Simulated scan of single mutants.
Amino acid sequence: MISADGKAEERLTKSPHADYNGPAAPDGSALLVIRVEGEEGPQQLLLQPLDGSPPKPLGPLAGRVRFPTFSPDGRFVVYETNGGKVDPAHFSDLYRVNSDGSGFKRITKNDEGNFEPAFSPKGDAIVFLSSRDRVAELYRMRPDGSDPVRLTNTPRDEWGARYSPDGKVLVFVSDREGADRIWLMPSAGGEARRMTQMRPAPRIVEDKPTWSPTGKQIAYALRAPEEPSRVGIVAMEDGKETFVRGPGGAGQVTEPAWSPDGRYLAVTVTRGSDQQIWIVRADGSGMTKLTSSPGGNWNPIWIPPRKGKGGK
C-alpha cells in the first residue's frame, strides 16, 4: 500500500506465496486478497485488514478464485470460484460469503459457468456473465442468486459489465461487431449503443471500462494496431474523448482506476521490463510517477478514506 503522494509505502502481506490485491472494503478498513500457492497450487480468498492484523480466510481453498467484490454495505463478498475443487479447469460458479468468513454458499449453478459479478449501487442486484446459453451473455439476479434475468441476446460474447453510480446504465465489453468494443445499455436491459466512435476494426481492443465516482466519465484501456496501449477517458455528456499516453509518448498504459473523489486516475505504465504506477488528473493531464521500485508494479486499487483519516 502506498500513500496518494507516493511518499510512504507499506507492505501488507508477508506470505511466501503470491498475493494479488482485489478491491478495498467500502469503509476503507480492509482489502480483498487472492493468495495462490505455487504456480498451479490451490487459491484462497482472504480479507486483509489494513491495521496490520492477520488476514482472514473467506471460503475454502479452491482451484480458481477470481473477481471478488464487496456488497456496497461491506457485509458480504461475492466471487467466482469452483468452490473447494482444486482442479483449475473446473468451471466456476458464483459464491457468497460474509465478511467475517461465515455463511459460505453457492448462488449460481450451471455446468457452463458463471463469472465476473458486479453489484448495483444499492446492493439489490448483481450483474454477471453466464455461458449457460452457449455464448457469454449478461444476466442480472438478486444477491441471494434468485430471479436471474438475461439482459443481452446476441450471437457473440459480452463481459465486464459495471453499473453506473446511479444504477441506471451498464457499461460492458462485447465483440458483437467482430472486435472487442465498449457498449452502454439501460441496466434493466434494452438497446445497447457503442460508447466510442472509432471505426470498427478486428484488431482494435477496448477493455476494462470503469465509471468515475460521479458517473460523468468512463475510463478504459485501448489497444490499436501499431500503437502503444493507452487509456481513454470519455465524457458522458458529449462523448468527448481524451487519451492518456505514456511519459514522452512511450510505454503501454493500462489498468485505469479512479480515485474515490474522482479527481485522479491511477494507471499502469509498462516500458520494457519496467512496470510502474502513475497518476493523472481526471482530464488526462499532469502525469506523475507514483512507484519506482524495480520489477512489476500493477493493478492499482484506491482505498476509500476511513472516517477521521486520510485516504491511501
Rank of each mutant, 00 (worst) to 15 (best):
P55F: 06
R106P: 10
Y163E: 02
V33F: 08
I126G: 00
G249R: 03
G123T: 09
G84A: 04
G74E: 06
G311R: 15
D261S: 08
E9C: 08
S292V: 01
A25P: 10
E80W: 10
P186N: 09
S187C: 04
P88M: 01
L58G: 05
V77K: 09
R132P: 01
M287R: 04
Q276K: 15
E10S: 09
A179I: 08
M195D: 04
S259N: 12
P304G: 12
Q275T: 15
R245L: 11
L151Q: 02
G239W: 07
K168H: 03
D207R: 11
T288Q: 06
F115A: 06
I126L: 13
R156N: 13
P57V: 08
E237A: 15
A282D: 12
A282H: 08
R193I: 08
K309L: 13
A4G: 01
R132E: 02
S53K: 14
S92Q: 08
I303K: 11
F115W: 14
G178W: 11
E226S: 06
G308Y: 05
E191C: 06
F119Y: 13
F243W: 13
S293E: 15
S273Y: 04
V234T: 12
A201C: 00
T270M: 09
P72N: 06
P186K: 03
D274K: 14
I233Y: 10
V171G: 00
Q252K: 12
M198I: 14
K109G: 07
N153G: 13
R176I: 08
L94Y: 06
L32A: 05
D133V: 08
V65D: 14
R230Y: 10
I2H: 13
I204F: 11
V65H: 10
F104C: 06
T210F: 01
S92R: 09
L94G: 02
G284F: 12
Q275V: 15
N299E: 13
I233M: 09
V234H: 11
G189Y: 02
A4Y: 04
L129H: 03
G246Y: 05
G63C: 10
N297Q: 13
R140H: 01
G239V: 03
Q44I: 05
W159M: 14
P304V: 12
G103N: 12
P60R: 00
D5S: 10
S53A: 15
A25W: 08
G284C: 12
R193D: 05
